[in-house]
Design a protein around this nucleic acid. Structure first.
Lengths: 126, 126
DNA sequence: TTTCTATTTGGCAAAAAAGCCAAGAAATAG
DNA sequence: CTATTTCTTGGCTTTTTTGCCAAATAGAAA
């Protein structure tokens, strides 16, 4: 099914939408419940128009949905599984950052990733 | 923790890396086990150099890892939770495509998303 | 109505990503 | 050694994305 070009493009679109710091920050904030654009704008600090465009990217991708009430537009998450995955990528990143810090401090703490996914088909890391 | 700029950027990098059809296709193929560059190149059909650059993007983001054996370089997944999330985004996309097809055929089958995540804080879709 | 507040859209310039070709590296075969 | 295979890197052009400003839109309030 993944070989279907359309399917592949749509799925990639979801990841692409999440692949921007500001958008990821907003999506993360929406994990706690829906927020209006002005609240999200305060959160990321960008121009309102920029935030609005980011949100439309997320919406087009199907990551969020929106509802207009009064003069406000409220956005909410529309991707159930995101929570679990964010926790996973989060822990991966945390470990990688820690490892890098250790290297900088000349104290190579963890030599390899301790991430739950670590596999070792070969002894190297190419 | 998400407010940490570095953390946010690194995590976004993972999503950005996955946000390209060719890269997503390769990552999906790697779910079945490690593959060498030439096999991945055959799969996506792009120039070898293009494939190699895509793989380096995935590697830099921490999505895959690689091992050199002989003249070949083998890539493998390095993100445990990806499997679950891909299934989730996959089912979401599948539904969205089906819904769009239904609209085109003038047979509005599913009025709203039946995705496990569907929420309804408001009756609209802005 | 006018005015305000909240949001979206158009347009544009700067920055980043994509993808090709050619050239470089590295292990292997002869 | 040279030649071959496999992969990576440099350079370059085209395309896409980003993010600002200004203008348009849409409710709410006066």
């Amino acid at each position: 099914m993944v070989h279907n070009k359309r399917f592949l493009a749509e799925q990639a679109r979801i990841f692409k939408a999440l692949g921007h710091p500001s958008r990821l920050l907003m999506v993360d904030a929406l994990r706690g419940g829906e927020l209006c654009v002005c609240e999200l704008q305060k959160l990321v600090g960008d121009d309102m128009s920029t935030v609005s465009k980011h949100l439309s990217v997320l919406k087009e991708a199907g990551v969020v949905a929106s509802s207009k009430r009064g003069t406000n537009t409220y956005y909410r998450l529309a991707l159930c599984c995101l929570d679990t995955f964010l926790r996973c990528t989060g822990s991966l990143v945390e470990q990688r950052i820690k490892a890098q810090l250790a290297v900088l401090e000349h104290t190579p703490a963890a030599p390899e990733q301790t991430h739950p996914d670590a596999r070792k088909p070969g002894p190297d890391g190419a």
